[in-house]
Design a protein around this nucleic acid. Structure first.
Length: 96
DNA sequence: AGGCTGACGCGGC
DNA sequence: CGCCGCGCCAGCC
């Protein structure tokens, strides 16, 4: 696999400030990942030590299996969700 | 080689 | 809201 990309993705996610979020697509684009799926995968296997909870899907909802946990962590940073959906227009952070 | 599976995204109906 | 299909790609049979 691509260790370079792997690290870049993690670095970018580490950049997202508390109280803000980014989408898989945003991270993928900033990291030069070929597809957002890669981002999800990298997080699945190596995302424990980065603010993974600040990464949402394009519609503002978290990945299905961690909705609860994730929204809870976000709520702790002041990111409120309407049901399961976070208002991206308000909290979205553009990674560089 | 071929098929399936995802922490995805987007456009269509 | 929901469902469907298609594109994407690394890993693991």
């Amino acid at each position: 696999m691509d260790e370079e990309l792997h690290e870049r993705v993690r670095e970018i996610i580490a950049t997202i400030p508390a109280g803000r979020v980014a989408t898989y697509g945003d991270v993928a684009a900033a990291a030069g990942a070929p597809t957002p799926r890669l981002v999800g995968r990298i997080l699945a296997e190596d995302g424990q030590d980065v603010p993974w909870h600040r990464v949402l899907r394009a519609n503002g909802t978290p990945a299905p299996h961690l909705v609860h946990r994730q929204l809870e962590l976000l709520r702790g940073e002041g990111v409120l969700a309407d049901g399961q959906r976070v208002d991206l227009r308000r909290y979205r952070w553009q990674p560089e």
